[in-house]
Simulated scan of single mutants.
Amino acid sequence: MEDYGKSEFAEQFRNRTKRFVIDIINLYRLLPRSVEAQVIGKQLLRSASSVGANYRAACRGRSQAEFYSKICIVVEEADESLFW
């Protein structure tokens, strides 16, 4: 039962990170075409897409240490997304 709970959580979080990236892409499309908005928007796209990609990599981690390392990157990129 415990493994199922972890697996269900991982799947839900995988879906949430994917939704986050899609939402950011849609936000980027709404930004003005000014140079400033595009520069900031591209930074946001990079950091947001890294959240999803690194979470998926964490789920494929071969060890707890590898999982933890990738999750730390996810947290950093989420914080950077918040900044932008």
Results as ranks from 00 to 15, higher is better:
M1S: 09
E2K: 09
E2Q: 08
D3I: 07
Y4M: 04
Y4K: 10
Y4G: 02
K6H: 05
E11V: 07
F13I: 04
R14L: 03
N15W: 04
N15Y: 05
K18R: 11
K18H: 12
K18N: 06
F20H: 07
F20T: 09
F20Q: 06
V21Y: 09
I22R: 14
I22V: 14
I22P: 02
D23A: 11
I24R: 00
N26K: 13
N26M: 12
L27T: 12
Y28K: 11
L30F: 04
L30Y: 04
L31P: 02
R33C: 06
R33Y: 08
S34M: 08
V35D: 08
V35C: 03
Q38I: 12
I40P: 02
G41D: 06
G41W: 06
K42I: 03
K42Q: 12
L44F: 02
L45Y: 00
S47A: 10
S50C: 12
V51T: 10
G52P: 09
A53R: 09
N54V: 03
A57T: 11
A57C: 11
C59Y: 07
C59Q: 14
R60F: 02
S63W: 15
S63V: 13
S63R: 15
S63L: 14
Q64R: 15
Q64H: 09
E66R: 11
F67H: 03
F67R: 07
Y68E: 14
S69H: 15
S69W: 11
K70F: 13
I73T: 00
I73D: 00
V75S: 12
V75K: 13
E77S: 01
E77L: 02
E77M: 03
A78V: 00
A78Y: 00
D79K: 11
E80M: 05
S81C: 10
S81A: 14
L82D: 08
F83K: 12
